[in-house]
Amino acid sequence: MTKFDKTYWDTKYRNNKTGWDIGYISTPIKTYIDQISEKNKSILIPGGGNSYEAEYLHKNGFKNVSVIDIAKQPLINLHNRFPSFHEKDLIHANFFDHQNKYDLIIEQTFFCALDPTLREEYVNKMYDLLNDGGKLVGLLFDFELTNEGPPFGGNIIEYIQLFYAKFEVRILERCYNSIKPRDGRELFFIFVKK
């Protein structure tokens, strides 16, 4: 078990040390969601935190959205902000233990929060959780991977090497619409399960 476990994240939320939380859906994710017409897709947001993405999806008519987080507080926060979000879709569990199938998984600051030793396990789990042809879509940080973090960085070459065996890389490029503090440091991606 890494030091970034349930206790670590619960403490972050309890002490309001959530600098990654911008308080609204990030622009690149919103732009992507806005072009999805199929509202019945099964969607997972892993390590969802306060999950403004899930709230946005739900408010825009998406019927099958689940959030999983190892910390309980952000799930409570989402339910308090948006009481009509189904409690059964707020999953308090370890992502790596989760068993289900999805058409789309949205990556928003989960990958970068994991201990980098778990990256290969992350790829395998995403592959397992997606239906055939399912998509993993979201943001990855584009800065040097160091031992300082979370967040932990990486670059395009590392990400391609990590994902290429199990995913077709449809898009992996610098974000043109990142929020100001992350401008020039984010990559938008669409990976399709092979």
Score class of each variant (00 low, 15 high):
10 D>Q: 14
145 L>N: 03
176 Y>M: 11
85 F>C: 02
130 L>C: 06
35 Q>F: 13
36 I>M: 11
152 F>E: 00
95 F>V: 06
102 Y>S: 04
35 Q>H: 15
127 Y>M: 00
31 T>F: 11
112 C>Y: 01
68 I>A: 08
115 D>K: 01
36 I>W: 06
19 G>H: 14
134 G>E: 00
126 M>D: 00
18 T>R: 01
17 K>H: 09
129 L>I: 08
129 L>M: 07
167 F>W: 07
21 D>I: 09
42 S>Y: 08
19 G>D: 13
175 C>R: 05
141 F>L: 12
73 Q>Y: 10
54 A>M: 11
147 N>P: 02
126 M>C: 13
158 E>M: 14
18 T>M: 00
13 Y>T: 02
191 F>H: 05
162 L>G: 04
8 Y>M: 02
30 K>V: 06
26 S>Y: 08
192 V>D: 07
187 L>N: 00
56 Y>A: 12
57 L>H: 05
125 K>V: 02
82 F>M: 14
34 D>R: 07
10 D>F: 04
67 V>R: 05
84 S>D: 14
123 V>G: 04
152 F>P: 02
111 F>N: 06
43 I>K: 05
103 D>V: 03
135 K>V: 07
60 N>L: 11
115 D>T: 06
140 L>F: 11
138 G>W: 03
116 P>W: 05
156 I>D: 05
10 D>L: 04
188 F>W: 01
129 L>D: 00
135 K>W: 10
55 E>C: 05
91 I>A: 02
174 R>C: 00
157 I>W: 06
142 D>R: 04
152 F>G: 01
181 P>N: 08
40 N>H: 12
112 C>Q: 05
28 P>S: 03
125 K>L: 04
126 M>K: 01
165 A>V: 09
15 N>I: 04
60 N>I: 10
88 K>C: 02
180 K>I: 13
46 P>K: 03
81 R>N: 14
124 N>T: 12
185 R>F: 09
190 I>G: 03
42 S>E: 14
23 G>S: 11
117 T>N: 09
108 Q>M: 10
25 I>W: 08
71 A>N: 04
73 Q>N: 10
7 T>L: 15
98 H>Q: 14
142 D>F: 08
127 Y>F: 12
121 E>Y: 09
112 C>K: 03
112 C>F: 09
3 K>E: 13
9 W>E: 00
118 L>Q: 13
142 D>I: 06
60 N>S: 12
146 T>N: 09
185 R>P: 03
158 E>P: 02
6 K>V: 01
134 G>Q: 03
24 Y>E: 13
146 T>G: 07
143 F>V: 04
23 G>F: 11
20 W>P: 03
123 V>L: 05
144 E>L: 12
169 V>E: 00
193 K>T: 11
19 G>I: 13
155 N>F: 05
63 K>P: 04
31 T>A: 15
172 L>R: 02
135 K>S: 15
